[in-house]
Deep mutational scan, measured.
Amino acid sequence: DEDSERELEKLRKNNASKEEIKEVLKRLGFSEDEAKKLAEKAG
């Protein structure tokens, strides 16, 4: 959803580590696997 998109955008701009991105995604309700895949894509 839009909030998670914004959250990811912010992380990308701040050069967050894949680990940080994954944690945020998991907080947003993604499964471990989904979060890992998305973090890879974002990283």
Rank of each mutant, 00 (worst) to 15 (best):
D3K: 11
L25F: 06
A42S: 10
K26Q: 11
A16E: 02
R27W: 05
D33P: 05
E2Y: 13
A39Y: 06
K36A: 14
S31G: 05
V24D: 02
E20Y: 10
L25T: 00
R6S: 11
L38A: 05
R6M: 07
K26H: 04
R12I: 14
K36F: 10
E34G: 03
L11T: 01
K41S: 12
K18R: 10
A39Q: 03
E7Q: 11
A39S: 09
R27I: 04
D3H: 10
N14I: 09
N15F: 10
E20I: 07
E20S: 05
E5H: 12
S4T: 15
R6Q: 07
K26T: 08
E2A: 11
N14H: 08
E34H: 04
A39L: 12
G29K: 01
E34R: 04
A16P: 02
A35C: 09
E32Y: 03
K22C: 15
K13F: 08
V24H: 11
A35F: 05
E40Q: 07
R6F: 09
K18T: 12
A42R: 09
R12F: 13
E7N: 05
D1L: 13
R12V: 10
G43I: 14
L28T: 00
K18P: 13
K10T: 09
D1G: 11
S4Q: 10
S4Y: 15
K26A: 05
K22V: 15
K10C: 15
K10N: 10
S17W: 05
L25M: 05
S17I: 04
K13H: 07
A16H: 04
E9H: 09
A16Q: 03
D3V: 12
K26E: 06
R6A: 10
K41C: 13
K37M: 12
E34Q: 09
E19H: 07
F30S: 00
R27H: 05
L11N: 02
E2Q: 12
S4K: 11
K37W: 08
K10Y: 09
N15H: 12
A35T: 02
K18G: 05
K37A: 12
D1K: 14
K10V: 06
N14E: 08
A39P: 01
E2T: 12
E32Q: 04
K37P: 03
L28I: 03
G43Y: 15
L11A: 05
L38C: 14
E40K: 03
A39R: 03
E9D: 09
A39F: 07
K22F: 15
L25P: 00
L8R: 04
A16G: 04
A35M: 04
S17T: 10
R27F: 03
E2M: 13
G43M: 13
K36R: 13
K37T: 10
D1V: 12
K13M: 08
E9V: 08
K41L: 13
K37S: 11
K36Q: 14
A35P: 02
E23A: 10
E32P: 04
R12P: 00
E32D: 10
K10R: 14
K10G: 05
K22S: 06
E20A: 09
N14L: 13
N14Y: 09
K13Y: 06
R12C: 15
K10L: 10
S17Q: 04
K41T: 11
N15Q: 09
L8S: 01
K22H: 09
G29V: 00
A39T: 06
S31F: 02
A39M: 13
G43F: 15
K10S: 07
K18I: 15
L8C: 13
A16N: 02
L28P: 00
L38H: 04
K37L: 13
I21T: 01
E34A: 08
D3A: 13
E7T: 14
S4F: 15
R12G: 02
L8I: 09
A35Y: 05
L28N: 01
E34P: 00
D33A: 10
K18Y: 14
A42Q: 10
E20H: 07
G43Q: 10
S17K: 05
L8K: 02
L38K: 03
E19I: 04
I21E: 01
E2K: 11
L25G: 00
D1P: 11
V24F: 15
K10A: 09
A42C: 14
L25I: 01
D3E: 12
I21W: 11
S4W: 15
K36W: 12
G29N: 01
K10W: 10
E9K: 11
D33R: 05
R12W: 11
D1I: 13
L38N: 02
E9Q: 12
K13T: 07
D3N: 10
V24Y: 15
E40P: 02
K41D: 11
K41Y: 12
A16C: 14
E34V: 09
S17F: 05
K36C: 14
A35D: 01
S17Y: 04
E40F: 07
L28D: 00
K36I: 13
S17L: 07
E9I: 11
E5I: 14
V24R: 09
N14G: 09
L8Q: 02
D3F: 13
E32I: 03
L11R: 04
V24A: 14
E7K: 08
F30P: 00
I21G: 00
R12N: 03
A35E: 01
R12M: 10
E40S: 08
E19L: 05
E23K: 09
S31L: 04
E34S: 03
G29M: 00
S31R: 03
E19F: 04
S4L: 15
A42E: 11
E40D: 11
K41I: 12
E2P: 12
E20D: 07
F30R: 02
L11M: 05
G43N: 11
G29T: 00
S17N: 05
E40R: 06
E5L: 14
N14W: 07
N14C: 15
F30Q: 01
E19D: 09
K13E: 06
K10E: 08
E40A: 09
I21Q: 01
E32R: 01
S17H: 03
A39C: 14
A35W: 07
S4A: 15
E5G: 07
K22T: 14
K37V: 11
A42W: 15
L28F: 05
K22I: 15
